[in-house]
Design a protein around this nucleic acid. Structure first.
Lengths: 143, 143
DNA sequence: TTTATAATTGAGAATGATACTCAATTATAA
DNA sequence: TTATAATTGAGTATCATTCTCAATTATAAA
């Protein structure tokens, strides 16, 4: 999906919900798109400020909530007390391997595990809604 | 393992490390053993206070750290900002299914997934150290 | 284009779990 | 029993995130 399409989709969603299209909201989306990494709210806040758009931390958090809510972004909890955000658009479902030493984050996909999760949920009579699967260890460089 | 054995093991570990055996530390261990559930620090603090032992939140946190460090307890991060602790002794490795509605926590074990995790780590040249695998959804009662 | 209005913003205060500080207390070895 | 280093607890600090509310702004209607 092109960035223009994504931007106009976001604007459409905002309008449909009676929400306003503001420079701050656009800036947060742009930031998420530009660097497809796993970004902290503070990073995004700093990146936007260091350009031209005036923004506050509160607005960054609020906009990130909207993006997650509307399916444009995914929020990660890596257990270190700071949430990470990544684009959800054009990014198939994946989980993460995190280096305990340098913090590097790598994505992985495994359909077998996905299937087994469904199986496990069924066994316990759960209707599966989301999951967190994170592997922690030492990356090649840090061993 | 009997609770007496566990208690004396803990005392031994403390002594070996030059740490003191205090009523507060014993109380935290006992609390963790008694209710094998997934306990929050605040629960444990309240439970100990409601009996006879004088204790502070700080000491509960400090003792839980020791218990995790020494392999007596496991710390869970369920993404809601409060850590949970569970006995690690006599409890084979397992992961968790959590109900999004009522918060119920159920344990599951799946050796296949465990093996695949190792495989995935190897593929990415990681030395696996820990992992988090949590399924979230609606339990039978909450659907 | 102007106006009316409800949504948004930002500064700073609030929150909530957890960690830290340090003087007073206590477990332990001699 | 004593000396001493470890521990405790009360309260303060921290840090990410959320909330508050007055001022600002996007937007629909005129």
């Amino acid at each position: 999906m092109t960035n223009e399409k994504l931007l106009s989709d976001f604007k459409d969603v905002l309008k449909k919900e009676g929400l306003k299209v503001t420079p701050q909201r656009i800036a947060v989306l742009e930031e998420i798109i530009k660097d497809k990494g796993h970004r902290e709210s503070e990073d995004i806040y700093m990146a936007i400020k260091s350009r031209k758009t005036h923004v506050s931390r509160a607005t960054v958090y609020r906009t990130l909530d909207i993006l997650v809510q509307k399916g444009f972004a995914r929020k990660l909890n890596l257990g270190d007390g700071r949430a990470r955000y990544e684009t959800k658009i054009d990014s198939p479902h994946h989980d993460h391997i995190i280096c305990n030493e340098c913090g590097k984050i790598i994505e992985f996909v495994n359909d077998e595990i996905e299937k087994m999760q469904e199986e496990i949920a069924k066994q316990h009579h759960f209707k599966l809604q989301q999951h967190i699967h994170q592997l922690f260890g030492l990356c090649k460089e840090c061993q």
